[in-house]
Design a protein around this nucleic acid. Structure first.
Length: 281
DNA sequence: CAATCAACCTGGGTGC
DNA sequence: TGCACCCAGGTTGATT
C-alpha cells in the first residue's frame, strides 16, 4: 500500500493527536511478526510506557515517532499495513490487528496488517541515522541537477527500477512510478543513463505533481490503504494509467499495456511512452 | 558489477 | 468442498 503520499497523509493526520502525548501502554497481538522482530517487541513493551511522543516525522516510506528518551519508534507499513487512530468501526476481517499504542488520553493507535510484513521497530539515534543514510532524498528536496545526477548514476538500470530504488530517491512506489513516467511520457523500460536532461527535468516535475496530487487526495486506495482515520483516500479516481490495462490511453486512445518490470506489474502506453526514441519519427 | 530471484507473510481469488 | 497455485501498493539479501 503506502507510498510517500499515503505515509505523509498518515503523518499529518496523526500529528496533532499524538505529539506531546505520553504513552500509557503498548500491546502486541500474538500474531505480530517473526522471532527476529520478537526481540524488539520486548524492548518496545518495556521501554515505551511513560515516554512522551515529542514529534512525528517521515523518512521516505518510514513513519518515525520521536520519543522523549531520544529513541525512535519506527513504523514501516510495507504492502498492507494500516495505522489507524481511534477506530470507531470493526476493521475488515482480513486485516489482523497486530499492535496497539495507547496514549495517556486513552486515544489508541492500532496497526492492522493483512500479511505480517509491516515493521514496528525501536531505534536509537544511531539506528535512525543508519536508516536515514540508506534512504535517498525526498523528491520534494531535490534540485533538477541532483535528480539528473542520481538518474545518470543508475546507468543500465531501467528507469522504473531506478525510481523504485529507495536509495536513489525515496518515497516512490509502484503506483506513483507508473503515473509519473506516463505523465512525463517516458518508457519504463528506458535505461536510466539514456534519459536526457530535458527528460529528467520533466520527470522530476511529473513525480512532484503525482505525489502532491496523491497527498491532496489523502492517498490512493485500491485494495488496502486507509488513512489514519480509517477512511479510503480519493486519488484512485484520478489515476491515468495504473490499473487501466486494455482501456484507452487518455492521450492517444491506444490501449494501456500491462507488463512486468523487475517483478512488478507495470502499466504504460507504448505509443505515448515509446521505448526507442526512433519510434517518435 | 548489474540483473534476477527468492524470501519474508498471509488472506483472497482462481481453476481444476 | 478441497487443494494447489498465484497474486499483492515493499524491502532485503543471495545468486547468477
Amino acid at each position: 500500500m503506502p507510498e510517500l503520499p499515503e505515509v505523509e497523509t498518515i503523518k499529518r493526520q496523526l500529528h496533532d493527536r499524538v505529539v506531546s502525548k505520553r504513552i500509557k501502554s503498548v500491546f502486541f497481538h500474538p500474531d505480530f511478526g517473526n522471532t527476529l522482530k520478537f526481540r524488539n517487541k520486548k524492548d518496545i513493551e518495556n521501554l515505551l510506557p511513560g515516554k512522551e511522543i515529542t514529534d512525528i516525522q517521515r523518512c521516505g516510506k518510514y513513519l518515525i515517532f520521536n520519543l522523549s528518551n531520544s529513541n525512535y519508534l519506527v513504523v514501516h507499513l510495507k504492502i498492507y499495513g494500516r495505522l489507524v487512530i481511534n477506530p470507531r468501526f470493526t476493521p475488515p476481517k482480513d486485516h489482523v490487528h497486530r499492535f496497539s499504542l495507547i496514549l495517556e488520553d486513552e486515544q489508541t493507535l492500532r496497526l492492522f496488517d493483512k500479511s505480517s510484513l509491516a515493521d514496528v521497530l525501536l531505534m536509537s539515534s544511531q539506528d535512525l541515522k543508519n536508516i536515514q543514510s540508506r534512504v535517498g532524498p525526498d523528491p520534494f528536496d531535490l534540485t533538477q541537477e541532483e535528480f539528473h545526477q542520481r538518474i545518470m548514476a543508475a546507468l543500465q538500470t531501467k528507469i522504473k527500477e531506478a525510481l523504485l530504488n529507495q536509495g536513489i530517491i525515496s518515497g516512490i512506489g509502484n503506483i506513483y512510478v507508473d503515473e509519473s513516467l506516463y505523465k512525463a511520457r517516458i518508457s519504463p523500460f528506458r535505461k536510466s543513463a539514456t534519459i536526457s536532461k530535458d527528460e529528467s527535468n520533466s520527470l522530476l516535475e511529473a513525480i512532484t505533481e503525482a505525489l502532491e496530487q496523491g497527498i491532496r487526495n489523502r492517498g490512493t486506495s485500491i485494495e488496502s490503504y486507509y488513512d489514519a482515520f480509517g477512511f479510503p483516500g480519493e486519488n484512485q479516481k484520478y489515476l491515468k494509467v495504473y490499473g487501466r490495462q486494455g482501456q484507452p490511453c487518455f492521450n492517444c486512445q491506444n490501449p494501456i499495456i500491462l507488463t512486468e518490470i523487475g517483478g512488478r506489474r507495470t502499466y504504460y502506453c507504448s505509443f505515448c511512452q515509446p521505448e526507442s526514441q526512433l519510434s517518435l519519427f
